[in-house]
Amino acid sequence: KALGHTIVPIRPALVPLEIEGGIHPALAGLELRNIEAQLFIDGKKKRQLFGELHFKKFGVSGPTILTLSGDAVDGLRAGKHVELLIDLKAALNRQKLDARLIRDFEKRYKEPFADVLRGLLPAKMVPLCLEQTNIPPNKLAGEISKKERKSLLNWLKGLRLEVKSYRSFKEAIVTAGGVNLKEVNPRTMESKIVSGLYLVGELLDLNGDTGGYNLQAAFSTGWLAGNSAGKEE
Protein backbone atom coordinates (compact mmCIF):
# COMPACT_ATOMS: atom_id res chain seq x y z
CA LYS A 1 0.00 0.00 0.00
CA ALA A 2 2.86 2.36 0.83
CA LEU A 3 4.18 1.75 -2.68
CA GLY A 4 0.95 2.94 -4.25
CA HIS A 5 -0.98 -0.28 -4.67
CA THR A 6 -4.71 -0.58 -4.00
CA ILE A 7 -5.43 -3.17 -1.31
CA VAL A 8 -8.79 -4.93 -1.46
CA PRO A 9 -9.90 -5.49 2.19
CA ILE A 10 -8.44 -8.66 3.69
CA ARG A 11 -10.94 -11.20 5.03
CA PRO A 12 -11.08 -14.93 5.84
CA ALA A 13 -11.98 -17.31 3.01
CA LEU A 14 -12.75 -21.03 3.00
CA VAL A 15 -13.79 -20.53 6.61
CA PRO A 16 -16.39 -22.22 8.87
CA LEU A 17 -19.60 -20.29 9.52
CA GLU A 18 -21.28 -19.52 12.83
CA ILE A 19 -25.02 -20.15 13.08
CA GLU A 20 -27.45 -17.95 15.01
CA GLY A 21 -28.15 -19.60 18.36
CA GLY A 22 -25.46 -22.21 17.75
CA ILE A 23 -26.12 -25.79 16.74
CA HIS A 24 -28.37 -28.25 18.58
CA PRO A 25 -26.05 -29.97 21.11
CA ALA A 26 -26.81 -33.40 19.66
CA LEU A 27 -25.46 -32.42 16.24
CA ALA A 28 -21.92 -31.38 17.23
CA GLY A 29 -19.43 -33.63 15.45
CA LEU A 30 -21.97 -35.04 12.98
CA GLU A 31 -20.82 -35.23 9.35
CA LEU A 32 -23.33 -35.54 6.52
CA ARG A 33 -22.73 -36.63 2.95
CA ASN A 34 -24.81 -36.18 -0.20
CA ILE A 35 -26.54 -33.02 0.97
CA GLU A 36 -27.19 -29.89 -1.05
CA ALA A 37 -26.42 -26.55 0.56
CA GLN A 38 -27.96 -23.37 -0.84
CA LEU A 39 -26.74 -19.93 0.17
CA PHE A 40 -29.20 -17.03 0.30
CA ILE A 41 -28.20 -13.37 0.60
CA ASP A 42 -31.09 -11.07 1.54
CA GLY A 43 -33.50 -13.76 0.40
CA LYS A 44 -31.92 -14.30 -3.03
CA LYS A 45 -30.17 -17.57 -3.85
CA LYS A 46 -26.50 -16.87 -4.50
CA ARG A 47 -25.10 -20.34 -5.00
CA GLN A 48 -25.71 -24.02 -4.27
CA LEU A 49 -23.41 -27.01 -3.88
CA PHE A 50 -23.76 -30.77 -3.45
CA GLY A 51 -21.44 -32.61 -1.09
CA GLU A 52 -20.48 -32.86 2.59
CA LEU A 53 -21.45 -30.79 5.62
CA HIS A 54 -19.93 -30.96 9.11
CA PHE A 55 -21.72 -29.72 12.22
CA LYS A 56 -19.66 -27.93 14.88
CA LYS A 57 -20.70 -26.54 18.27
CA PHE A 58 -20.64 -23.02 16.85
CA GLY A 59 -22.10 -23.77 13.42
CA VAL A 60 -21.13 -25.56 10.22
CA SER A 61 -18.09 -26.46 8.15
CA GLY A 62 -17.11 -29.07 5.57
CA PRO A 63 -16.36 -28.78 1.83
CA THR A 64 -19.70 -27.30 0.75
CA ILE A 65 -19.75 -24.71 3.53
CA LEU A 66 -16.12 -23.70 3.06
CA THR A 67 -16.70 -23.09 -0.64
CA LEU A 68 -19.87 -21.08 0.02
CA SER A 69 -18.22 -19.11 2.82
CA GLY A 70 -16.61 -16.50 0.56
CA ASP A 71 -19.98 -15.15 -0.57
CA ALA A 72 -21.36 -15.55 2.96
CA VAL A 73 -18.52 -13.50 4.47
CA ASP A 74 -18.95 -10.74 1.89
CA GLY A 75 -22.69 -10.68 2.55
CA LEU A 76 -22.23 -10.41 6.31
CA ARG A 77 -19.61 -7.68 5.94
CA ALA A 78 -22.10 -5.73 3.82
CA GLY A 79 -24.70 -6.00 6.59
CA LYS A 80 -26.96 -8.36 4.64
CA HIS A 81 -29.04 -11.27 5.91
CA VAL A 82 -27.29 -14.57 5.20
CA GLU A 83 -29.02 -17.94 5.38
CA LEU A 84 -28.26 -21.54 4.45
CA LEU A 85 -30.91 -23.95 3.22
CA ILE A 86 -29.84 -27.59 3.59
CA ASP A 87 -31.48 -30.34 1.55
CA LEU A 88 -30.87 -33.46 3.63
CA LYS A 89 -32.27 -35.75 0.94
CA ALA A 90 -30.80 -34.17 -2.17
CA ALA A 91 -30.81 -37.44 -4.12
CA LEU A 92 -34.63 -37.51 -4.06
CA ASN A 93 -36.95 -34.86 -5.46
CA ARG A 94 -39.95 -33.83 -3.37
CA GLN A 95 -42.34 -36.22 -5.11
CA LYS A 96 -40.10 -39.27 -4.65
CA LEU A 97 -39.30 -38.39 -1.05
CA ASP A 98 -42.98 -37.91 -0.24
CA ALA A 99 -43.73 -41.32 -1.77
CA ARG A 100 -41.04 -42.86 0.43
CA LEU A 101 -42.49 -41.23 3.54
CA ILE A 102 -45.92 -42.62 2.71
CA ARG A 103 -44.47 -46.12 2.23
CA ASP A 104 -42.50 -45.95 5.48
CA PHE A 105 -45.49 -44.74 7.48
CA GLU A 106 -47.76 -47.42 6.00
CA LYS A 107 -45.23 -50.21 6.51
CA ARG A 108 -44.39 -49.19 10.08
CA TYR A 109 -47.80 -47.83 11.03
CA LYS A 110 -47.71 -49.31 14.57
CA GLU A 111 -44.32 -47.80 15.43
CA PRO A 112 -43.69 -44.43 17.11
CA PHE A 113 -42.83 -41.58 14.77
CA ALA A 114 -39.41 -41.12 16.43
CA ASP A 115 -38.47 -44.73 15.63
CA VAL A 116 -39.45 -44.32 11.98
CA LEU A 117 -37.33 -41.17 11.79
CA ARG A 118 -34.24 -43.17 12.71
CA GLY A 119 -34.63 -44.97 9.40
CA LEU A 120 -34.54 -41.63 7.58
CA LEU A 121 -31.94 -39.68 9.52
CA PRO A 122 -28.79 -40.14 11.60
CA ALA A 123 -29.86 -40.68 15.22
CA LYS A 124 -28.26 -37.38 16.25
CA MET A 125 -30.62 -35.45 13.98
CA VAL A 126 -33.84 -36.94 15.33
CA PRO A 127 -34.19 -34.59 18.36
CA LEU A 128 -33.83 -31.50 16.15
CA CYS A 129 -36.35 -32.84 13.65
CA LEU A 130 -38.89 -33.56 16.39
CA GLU A 131 -38.34 -30.12 17.87
CA GLN A 132 -38.73 -28.20 14.62
CA THR A 133 -41.57 -30.19 13.03
CA ASN A 134 -43.60 -30.28 16.28
CA ILE A 135 -44.69 -33.86 15.62
CA PRO A 136 -45.05 -35.85 18.89
CA PRO A 137 -42.30 -38.50 19.08
CA ASN A 138 -44.66 -41.19 20.41
CA LYS A 139 -47.37 -40.61 17.82
CA LEU A 140 -47.84 -43.78 15.77
CA ALA A 141 -46.65 -43.60 12.18
CA GLY A 142 -50.08 -44.70 10.98
CA GLU A 143 -51.63 -41.65 12.66
CA ILE A 144 -49.38 -39.06 11.03
CA SER A 145 -51.60 -36.59 9.17
CA LYS A 146 -50.98 -35.29 5.66
CA LYS A 147 -50.19 -31.88 7.14
CA GLU A 148 -47.59 -33.39 9.48
CA ARG A 149 -46.08 -35.41 6.64
CA LYS A 150 -45.75 -32.25 4.55
CA SER A 151 -44.11 -30.52 7.50
CA LEU A 152 -41.54 -33.33 7.70
CA LEU A 153 -41.02 -33.23 3.93
CA ASN A 154 -40.38 -29.48 4.02
CA TRP A 155 -37.91 -29.90 6.87
CA LEU A 156 -35.97 -32.68 5.14
CA LYS A 157 -35.73 -30.67 1.91
CA GLY A 158 -35.04 -27.33 3.55
CA LEU A 159 -33.34 -27.19 6.95
CA ARG A 160 -32.82 -23.47 7.55
CA LEU A 161 -29.71 -22.15 9.27
CA GLU A 162 -29.26 -18.42 9.81
CA VAL A 163 -25.61 -17.39 9.51
CA LYS A 164 -24.61 -14.80 12.10
CA SER A 165 -20.84 -14.65 11.62
CA TYR A 166 -17.71 -16.49 10.49
CA ARG A 167 -14.64 -17.86 12.23
CA SER A 168 -11.31 -16.08 12.50
CA PHE A 169 -8.28 -16.07 10.20
CA LYS A 170 -6.82 -18.85 12.38
CA GLU A 171 -9.50 -21.24 11.14
CA ALA A 172 -9.60 -19.99 7.55
CA ILE A 173 -7.78 -22.02 4.91
CA VAL A 174 -6.91 -18.95 2.84
CA THR A 175 -7.49 -15.20 2.80
CA ALA A 176 -9.48 -13.15 0.33
CA GLY A 177 -8.45 -9.64 -0.60
CA GLY A 178 -4.99 -8.24 -1.25
CA VAL A 179 -3.37 -6.31 -4.08
CA ASN A 180 -5.85 -5.39 -6.81
CA LEU A 181 -5.29 -7.70 -9.79
CA LYS A 182 -5.67 -4.79 -12.23
CA GLU A 183 -2.38 -3.44 -10.91
CA VAL A 184 -0.40 -6.60 -11.75
CA ASN A 185 0.74 -7.83 -15.16
CA PRO A 186 -0.83 -11.32 -15.45
CA ARG A 187 1.86 -12.44 -17.93
CA THR A 188 4.74 -11.81 -15.54
CA MET A 189 3.18 -11.06 -12.10
CA GLU A 190 5.17 -7.82 -12.05
CA SER A 191 3.63 -4.74 -10.50
CA LYS A 192 2.37 -2.18 -13.00
CA ILE A 193 3.19 0.50 -10.45
CA VAL A 194 6.64 -0.48 -9.15
CA SER A 195 9.13 -1.89 -11.64
CA GLY A 196 10.90 -5.01 -10.40
CA LEU A 197 8.25 -5.79 -7.77
CA TYR A 198 6.54 -9.16 -8.25
CA LEU A 199 3.37 -10.15 -6.42
CA VAL A 200 2.14 -13.73 -6.00
CA GLY A 201 -0.17 -16.05 -4.08
CA GLU A 202 -2.16 -14.62 -1.21
CA LEU A 203 -0.58 -11.20 -1.61
CA LEU A 204 -3.06 -10.86 -4.47
CA ASP A 205 -6.82 -10.42 -4.38
CA LEU A 206 -7.11 -13.98 -5.63
CA ASN A 207 -8.82 -16.96 -4.00
CA GLY A 208 -10.67 -20.00 -5.27
CA ASP A 209 -12.88 -22.86 -4.12
CA THR A 210 -11.64 -25.66 -1.89
CA GLY A 211 -10.01 -28.54 -3.73
CA GLY A 212 -6.42 -27.46 -4.36
CA TYR A 213 -7.17 -24.43 -6.51
CA ASN A 214 -5.54 -21.99 -4.10
CA LEU A 215 -2.38 -24.08 -3.88
CA GLN A 216 -2.26 -24.22 -7.66
CA ALA A 217 -2.67 -20.44 -7.85
CA ALA A 218 0.22 -19.97 -5.40
CA PHE A 219 2.46 -22.42 -7.28
CA SER A 220 1.64 -21.00 -10.70
CA THR A 221 1.98 -17.31 -9.82
CA GLY A 222 5.19 -18.05 -7.90
CA TRP A 223 6.70 -19.92 -10.85
CA LEU A 224 5.65 -17.21 -13.29
CA ALA A 225 7.07 -14.43 -11.13
CA GLY A 226 10.37 -16.26 -10.58
CA ASN A 227 10.73 -17.12 -14.23
CA SER A 228 9.91 -13.56 -15.28
CA ALA A 229 12.30 -12.02 -12.74
CA GLY A 230 15.06 -14.35 -13.92
CA LYS A 231 14.61 -13.23 -17.52
CA GLU A 232 14.93 -9.60 -16.43
CA GLU A 233 18.40 -10.34 -15.10
Rank of each mutant, 00 (worst) to 15 (best):
A37N: 05
I86V: 15
Q38N: 12
I135V: 12
A72Y: 01
D87S: 04
P16Y: 11
I65H: 00
G119V: 02
L53T: 05
G21C: 04
I7P: 02
K124Q: 15
A13N: 09
E131P: 01
L215F: 15
I193K: 15
T175Q: 14
D205M: 08
G43K: 09
A141L: 03
D74M: 13
K57C: 00
L181C: 12
A91H: 14
M125F: 14
L130S: 01
R160L: 09
P136H: 12
A218K: 08
G208R: 12
P9A: 12
L128F: 08
A13V: 03
A123D: 12
L121V: 01
T188R: 10
N180F: 12
I173P: 00
G158N: 10
L224F: 00
G230S: 14
T175S: 14
I19G: 02
K107L: 07
L66R: 09
M125H: 08
A99G: 11
Y213R: 12
L203N: 10
G75D: 03
I144L: 15
L159P: 01
I19C: 01
F58D: 08
L39K: 01
L17R: 02
V15H: 06
M125C: 01
A13Y: 07
F40H: 13
L130I: 08
P112A: 06
E190I: 04
L140I: 03
K231I: 03
S151R: 15
L76R: 05
I41L: 13
T188C: 05
G142W: 12
D115W: 07
R100A: 12
N138T: 11
E31V: 07
G208Q: 11
S220Q: 13
K146I: 13
T133S: 05
P137L: 12
K231W: 11
N214H: 05
A114Y: 13
F40T: 00
H5C: 05
R11A: 14
L68K: 01
M125S: 05
N227F: 14
L88S: 02
D205W: 07
D71S: 14
I41D: 02
G196C: 11
N207F: 11
A91P: 00
D115A: 09
L153C: 07
I135L: 10
P136C: 08
R187M: 12
G211L: 04
I144S: 09
L120S: 00
L204C: 09
D74I: 04
V73R: 08
G51E: 05
L76Q: 01
G43V: 08
V200I: 15
R47M: 13
A13T: 07
D104P: 00
L197D: 09
S195T: 08
S195R: 14
Q95A: 14
K96I: 00
L76S: 02
R11V: 03
L3Y: 07
K46E: 13
G177A: 06
A26I: 00
G201Q: 03
K157C: 09
I144D: 08
N34F: 02
K89E: 06
L199T: 13
A99T: 10
Y109R: 15
R77M: 13
F219D: 05
S145V: 10
F113I: 06
P127W: 03
D42R: 06
H5D: 07
